[in-house]
């Protein structure tokens, strides 16, 4: 079944089983491998993308539910790795193995879009669903605060 949606700013049509999770459409059908598979049950956050601007877990989002909507994956977060969270992540040297970081960045970007200066409690709430086995949590927290400052500075 053909399903059309907006992906990273462009119109995209895929012809797949409508039950197929968005995760596997992105990764296997469209070759956008920046979105990661971690658990398949919305338990780890590695597959986080934006659906109509909000963070969702692509691993439990059937492609049928995406029809007509707007999806942003890590590849579309910015054209040149300049989104404030990406800048902040680089400045804080956050990633270790890096596998969970696409999901962390997408979750953080969604948080900052809604809460311009998140508190530590806001960060706990927004990010506790994103597992990092390398343990970069302290750096993620610092980077989110830094990204908020970058964003505020850009506006000022």
């Amino acid at each position: 079944m053909a399903i059309t949606f907006t992906l990273n700013g462009g119109r995209q049509t895929v012809d797949v089983n409508p039950q197929t999770p968005l995760l596997w459409v992105l990764r296997d059908t469209l070759g956008l491998t920046g979105t990661k598979f971690g658990c398949g049950m919305a338990l780890c956050g590695a597959c986080t993308v934006h659906l109509n601007g909000s963070a969702v877990r692509a691993c439990i989002t059937p492609i049928s539910s995406v029809a007509g909507k707007t999806v942003t994956s890590i590849e579309g977060l910015s054209a040149d790795t300049t989104h404030p969270v990406q800048q902040a992540w680089m400045e804080e040297d956050v990633p270790q193995c890096g596998y969970c970081q696409s999901g962390q960045l997408m979750a953080a970007a969604s948080l900052l879009a809604k809460t311009s200066r998140p508190t530590d409690a806001d960060i706990d709430e927004a990010m506790r669903g994103n597992i990092c086995r390398c343990g970069t949590y302290t750096q993620i927290r610092s980077a989110i605060h830094r990204a908020a400052a970058i964003k505020a500075g850009a506006k000022a």
Partner: peptide
């Protein structure tokens, strides 16, 4: 780290 950039843009 030399691998950071590619790990924040997918």
């Amino acid at each position: 780290r030399l691998d950071t950039r590619d790990k924040v843009n997918g």
